[in-house]
Amino acid sequence: MNEETLLSIVVPCYNEEAVLPETIKVLTKILESLVNEEIISSQSFILFVDDGSADKTWQLIRTQSEADSAIHGLKLSRNFGHQNALIAGIETVSDHADCVITIDADLQDDVRAIRTFVNKFYEGYDVVYGVRKGRDQDTFFKKYTALAFYKLIAKMGVNLVQNHADFRLLSRRAVREFMRYQEENLFIRGIIPLLGFRSAKVYYDRQKRYAGESKYPLKKMIQFAVDGITSFSIAPIKLVMSIGFLLVLVGGGIAVYAFLNWLMDHTISGWTSLILSIWIIGGMQLIAIGVIGEYIGKIFTETKKRPRYTIEINTMYDENNDKEPLSHERPYPENIR
């Protein structure tokens, strides 16, 4: 253990006013406990990232930030999405923290696992994954679609930690290596295993949302899955090409069958087979164009090199905030690395 180790907890928030007071209370209690036991530095802090919330999320963060030196806030200028909010928080604390823990604000992840995360960090692990033990809290549809997604993406060669979301610990060097990945469509759950550092898993029971509504409806979950697949694999394009070849073979077989019927004078005039062929092939063409368009769209986005997020307010460096800003750089504890 090293009481000089500075821990930062990054919490992305989007319209979380219903749950945020309890989240702040619970996380502050955990942080204070670790500090009092001299497990982490007294300068350790929590950074709440407001991802363009339309409710009172930022007011709550700002008020708590002014009242407690262990709480900071980062306000993005608009909603950039959960993954970009995570990146914004991680990059903001990267020069201050010896290790960073990311956790959602809904209190579904077991905050008691944070202590185990830190212990694993002291054992020499640069990445610690929070992995849920099961999906008993999920609906039937969400449970089996999630499992299907993990199986599908694994077959495509993407190395994901099953049943792991964004509850994890990263050491400083893991954070710095992660920050070298500059693509616009950054699928964090797929990138972290690519870092290659020593990792561990901590299993926990996922709870029901404390309050508020889920920020991942079906539409967002589908888009998230599509982004994950297309960010790491060209398998969908290969699949479409394979189906195209198969349709050509089927078309050739139908042509031979029609020719034989013509030789035997068994031709029957009609439009059913023609219409079916038009709809099937036309549908496949549209699917193929859509899949290719998804990749071209990603290329278009990447070439523009636009920033992933824009920070409107950062209480760590806000001149109107009475708190002293954290030091820009701290030496890494020698007995840890």
Rank of each mutant, 00 (worst) to 15 (best):
I24N: 00
T230Y: 07
S273E: 08
R306V: 03
A154T: 13
I299C: 03
F141C: 07
V240G: 02
A258G: 07
R189E: 15
Y14A: 07
L60G: 07
A235K: 14
S44Q: 11
E37Y: 05
K298Q: 13
V240S: 06
T310N: 09
D322W: 10
K323A: 09
K220V: 08
T145D: 09
D227I: 06
E37A: 09
D166N: 11
L107Y: 05
S277R: 02
T145C: 00
C13S: 11
A288K: 11
F149C: 00
R173L: 07
P333L: 06
I46M: 02
A70N: 15
L170D: 08
T5I: 13
V202N: 00
G283Q: 09
E312Y: 07
I9Y: 09
P236C: 09
L194R: 13
S33D: 13
P193A: 08
P21I: 15
Y317G: 03
I287P: 06
S53G: 06
P325K: 12
E319Q: 09
I289A: 04
T145M: 00
I254L: 15
E302W: 02
D136M: 06
R168K: 06
W271G: 04
T57S: 03
D138W: 09
V26E: 05
M1F: 06
S94T: 14
C13M: 08
L263V: 08
F121T: 02
T63C: 12
